[in-house]
Design a protein around this nucleic acid. Structure first.
Lengths: 210, 210
DNA sequence: GTCTATAGGCTGATAGAC
DNA sequence: GTCTATCAGCCTATAGAC
């Protein structure tokens, strides 16, 4: 059975090869620039070979999005460990910004897509909780880290009363806005990223604190 | 010369016909879904005819983006008239949100594009000030309404001291984030838009006020 | 398991008839 | 000015040789 295992391993290797090549292409040209032929060229296989490892182009794109969300969850996980909710809120903000700036193309892949893709994508974000702690998708998981922190801040009377989900969404929007502008706009147009993030994170506290 | 004038008028009419059809297609399928053939089908002309009115596909896309920015400036113009800077700031925020929610596809066209398009697009945003008041592009024009308001608020001691451009950018990011999430996410995922905008606009004041 | 070859469909853009 | 016809190029996906 050593043979069967080696085969499994080799198959998984090519899968990863395909996904890595796909990530690079999407990084440069966006998800809509991803084609089977470009992947095949990059890994130096024939186009048809790709279909032995993935059902079709969309399956590859889907895989990329899911792994992108996992990456985001990975960035946010350390922040979630912080026990003081106010410090945790700050840490979440900085972790999110860090993800956006270190992995701009991943950010674009999961959050900045045309209408048709976006809607299909948001389904992934919610359902499909395979291998997760609680049956929720990775996107919802990441959001809940924020929402629960806001809820705790309200409970403790540190934040003014309000709907924690709406407030969390509003905070998320601020972070998203700053990262999205960075990712979309040319460098010279924008000024100071870290100042902007800093303003926003301090601003969130001032905006919602009691 | 009445004949020449009629010809001019007819030509302009078809131009508008093409642009309207293009807007509808982009609304449904995004800028990358725009093709010459789809436009031709929609206006019931042959594909080749389009090329008598526009140099190529990109020229049409560019025109769409420019007119989209003009629309945004149109939404913001009334807000810019408000003399009280604090009220003006609120009005700008609401006008921006209104634009995003009433014209989501225009919003997407001008602000949510893949990397290659985005960078080319941002050039338009800055330069090319044909027919504008002061030689600046329509994007910069819209931004300056906000930046100048922030500067005035700092000067009057209503806002804490700081770089008005960075602060304006941070405020813009918040609005952009809220609108962008609306435009990208499925309805059921998100909660209350007007509450979110309200939080943000009040939050901005609390975040930057002295 | 990987290749070559190919079907069938989309694209932008152009040439030439009318 | 508008048409039809067409080229050349890309795409996804599949069939069949090896």
């Amino acid at each position: 059975m050593g043979i069967a295992e080696r085969r499994e391993r080799q198959k998984a290797e090519i899968r990863e090869l395909i996904l890595d090549a796909a990530r690079e292409i999407v990084g440069k040209e966006g998800l809509e620039g991803l084609t089977i032929r470009k992947i095949a060229d990059a890994i130096e296989y024939a186009p048809g070979t790709i279909y032995l490892h993935f059902e079709n182009r969309d399956a590859i794109a889907r895989e990329l999005v899911v792994s992108g969300f996992m990456e985001l969850v990975g960035y946010m996980a350390p922040a979630a460990q912080e026990s003081d909710p106010l410090k945790r809120l700050d840490a979440i903000g900085y972790a999110y910004a860090k993800f956006g700036i270190e992995r701009p193309e991943t950010y674009r892949t999961i959050f900045l897509q045309p209408p048709a893709i976006s809607s299909a994508l948001m389904e992934l974000l919610k359902g499909e909780g395979e291998g997760t702690d609680d049956g929720r998708g990775p996107g919802e998981q990441a959001f809940n880290i924020l929402a629960e922190t806001v809820a705790e801040l309200i409970d403790r009377g540190i934040f003014r009363p309000g709907n924690p989900v709406v407030i969390a969404e509003t905070i998320w929007a601020w972070l998203h806005g700053i990262v999205a502008l960075r990712v979309s706009c040319s460098e010279e147009m924008l000024t100071d990223f870290s100042a902007s993030i800093h303003y926003a994170i301090e601003g969130v506290r001032r905006a919602f604190a009691r």
